[in-house]
Amino acid sequence: MTANCPVRPLAMAVVVLLGVCASAQAADKAPSDKELIASALRAAPPGVAKDATVVVADAQGKMRTLREGKNGFTCMPDNPTTPGPDPMCMDKNALEWASAWMAHKPPPAGKIGLMYMLEGGTDASNTDPYATQPTASNHWIKTGAHVMVVGADASFYDTYPKSADPDTSAPYVMWAGTPYQHLMAPIK
């Protein structure tokens, strides 16, 4: 993958926020590309996964394409260093949204994106888009299998709960009141 690939900023965001990219492991324990692809494809429904691009990042965030896709979705495998399964698959607009988040820039207007995390989720702050670990004030939560809607107008999010300590078994807004608020919709 070239250095100017649009997925690269997303990878950095995912490393910091969700820990979705595969971490460097001891050489004798590193998963094979086939295993990484299988993990990544479990993030989305089969109809999406079958034609998605699959990428993986090393510990420094350098991206490597494991499989080229043709449907505009990009999937990343589980990060074995985080609790629970957390592979992720997202459309082009979600890639742009995540890139804006990572750059601390406003998300693109009028571009609603979709992310799948059907294998589960990771622990994250529900209030701080840049938190990397729990604190007494950042409302750390555990997410399960879900989809995320990003980039919608604020009025869309106003129709869902925005509690700092949400019921994660029902749809809720994560990072409410920030430019990066998004809908978390549980699947299971």
Rank of each mutant, 00 (worst) to 15 (best):
T135G: 11
P85I: 08
C21Q: 09
G151M: 12
G84R: 05
A152P: 01
Y116G: 11
A100T: 04
W101M: 14
V56F: 01
A98S: 09
A22G: 03
S125M: 10
G110Y: 02
T74V: 13
V147L: 15
A26L: 12
K50M: 09
K105V: 10
A24F: 13
T135S: 14
A57L: 03
G144M: 11
T135C: 10
I141A: 14
Q60F: 06
P106F: 04
P83A: 13
P80G: 03
A131N: 04
P134I: 14
K105C: 01
G47D: 12
P85E: 11
Q133D: 12
S23W: 02
A52N: 01
C75I: 08
A30M: 15
L41W: 03
A136T: 12
V56I: 01
D28Y: 07
R42S: 14
P31L: 09
D86W: 11
D86L: 14
Y130S: 14
A94E: 04
A52G: 00
L36C: 02
L41K: 12
A24Q: 14
K111H: 02
V147E: 02
K105R: 12
V20N: 13
T143E: 08
A100C: 09
P87G: 11
L118F: 09
L41C: 03
C89S: 09
L41Y: 09
E35N: 14
P31T: 15
V15I: 14
D128M: 05
Y130P: 08
R42K: 10
C75E: 04
A59K: 07
G121M: 05
S39F: 05
A27R: 07
P129M: 04
D123W: 05
N138Y: 00
S32V: 12
K92V: 15
A94I: 10
T135I: 07
N79M: 09
V55N: 00
E68V: 06
S137I: 08
T82D: 07
V54M: 01
P46Y: 09
P108T: 07
E35D: 14
F73E: 03
T53N: 00
Q133I: 07
P106Y: 02
V150L: 11
L36R: 02
W97S: 12
N71T: 03
G120F: 02
Y130T: 04
L36N: 00
A44K: 10
A152W: 04
V150C: 02
V150M: 13
G84F: 01
H139D: 14
I112V: 07
V20D: 11
C21F: 03
A22E: 00
T135H: 06
K105G: 04
C21G: 13
A145Q: 04
I112N: 01
L66Q: 01
K62D: 02
R64G: 01
D28L: 13
G110Q: 04
A103T: 10
M76R: 12
N93E: 09
M63P: 00
M90H: 06
N126L: 10
K142M: 15
S23E: 02
A124S: 14
E35T: 11
G144W: 06
A27W: 06
E35R: 07
A98K: 11
A98P: 00
